[in-house]
């Protein structure tokens, strides 16, 4: 088998370019995925066909290959893709475009001079899908689909650091569903699961996209509110409390309602670290529970 045959049969894209970024080679994989036949693209400017590549990082990497004969590696994690092709398989619905790792290297002529470069395009969509799923599994709560405690802990540390550096305010609300054990004991655990899902979905609709909402454990939840003063946090908590109280739940033909108790605390100079803030909110929640439930209590 000769080399041109191999280049057409290999399961990666191969393009060659001259020093003016004019396409001089385009293998069958590129034809199939780019949906442009070789004879229609060879001789054309790469940037005319793919204007997204006409930027300083792409030119910089190509220049280094032409100048030094080195290789450049454009990783999917950073660039996503160089060539906006459709995913090759319908199983890759997580991504609208194929995810690619690209390698750029020198092509030397008979004299040993670099007069062209090659780009190898590798479809890594499947790996990116698995990676995305793994990240999601590590950060999301399996039942409710909201963030888990591990994710909250990391965001809380980040937010605390932001406060320490730039003095940005933030609040934390701790939520507990009142008499949740009774719901489980009376209506069964499946019904309890439905309540957890319904409460989370109602809260999620009420908060902002930048707020971090997480299941803290069992029937306890936490909302981290960046750039929020205590007074605004209390207003939001009160509106959530009312929203849950008024909601009529349906599960297996039974209708009932639940209430929630909330403890809220805002960052201030007396708080040494993110755990301290959680402790304050927890104490406020304890007070809300012991003083009658279905209420919002703040500590600062």
């Amino acid at each position: 088998m000769n080399i041109p045959q191999l280049i057409d049969m290999i399961d990666v894209g191969i393009i060659t370019l001259d020093s003016e970024f004019v396409i001089t080679g385009w293998n069958r994989w590129m034809e199939n995925n780019g949906k442009i036949p070789e004879e229609k693209i060879v001789g054309k400017s790469l940037f005319q066909e793919y204007p997204n590549l006409d930027n300083s990082w792409f030119r910089r990497n190509c220049s280094s290959v032409f100048r030094f004969g080195s290789f450049a590696f454009l990783a999917q994690k950073i660039h996503g893709n160089c060539f906006p092709f459709e995913p090759a398989s319908s199983f890759h619905s997580d991504f609208e475009v194929m995810q690619q790792d690209c390698t750029i290297g020198p092509v030397r002529n008979e004299k040993g001079d670099i007069d062209q470069i090659f780009i190898v395009v590798k479809d890594v969509t499947q790996i990116a899908v698995y990676e995305k799923k793994l990240i999601s599994m590590a950060e999301k709560d399996g039942l409710t689909g909201i963030n888990n405690r591990k994710y909250l802990d990391s965001k809380l540390i980040e937010e605390f650091e932001r406060h320490r550096r730039y003095n940005h305010n933030f609040c934390l609300i701790m939520i507990d569903i009142d008499f949740f054990k009774k719901v489980n004991d009376t209506w069964g655990h499946l019904c309890g699961d439905e309540v957890l899902k319904k409460v989370t979905s109602l809260i999620q609709e009420r908060i902002r996209t930048q707020d971090i909402f997480a299941r803290y454990g069992g029937e306890e939840f936490v909302i981290l509110l960046p750039e929020t003063e205590l007074e605004d946090g209390i207003k939001l908590a009160e509106s959530i409390r009312k929203l849950i109280e008024l909601e009529v739940m349906n599960s297996n033909g039974k209708t009932f309602s639940v209430t929630i108790s909330m403890g809220i605390s805002a960052i201030h100079d007396g708080i040494a670290d993110s755990k301290d803030l959680l402790d304050y909110a927890d104490k406020a929640l304890y007070e809300a529970k012991t003083s009658g439930r279905n209420k919002v209590v703040s500590i600062n």
């Binding site: 990497n61 100048r67 030094f68 080195s70 450049a72």
Partner: peptide, 9 residues
């Protein structure tokens, strides 16, 4: 990658 490639190249 660029700095290393330049030196080794």
């Amino acid at each position: 990658n660029i700095l290393i490639g330049a030196c080794i190249g």
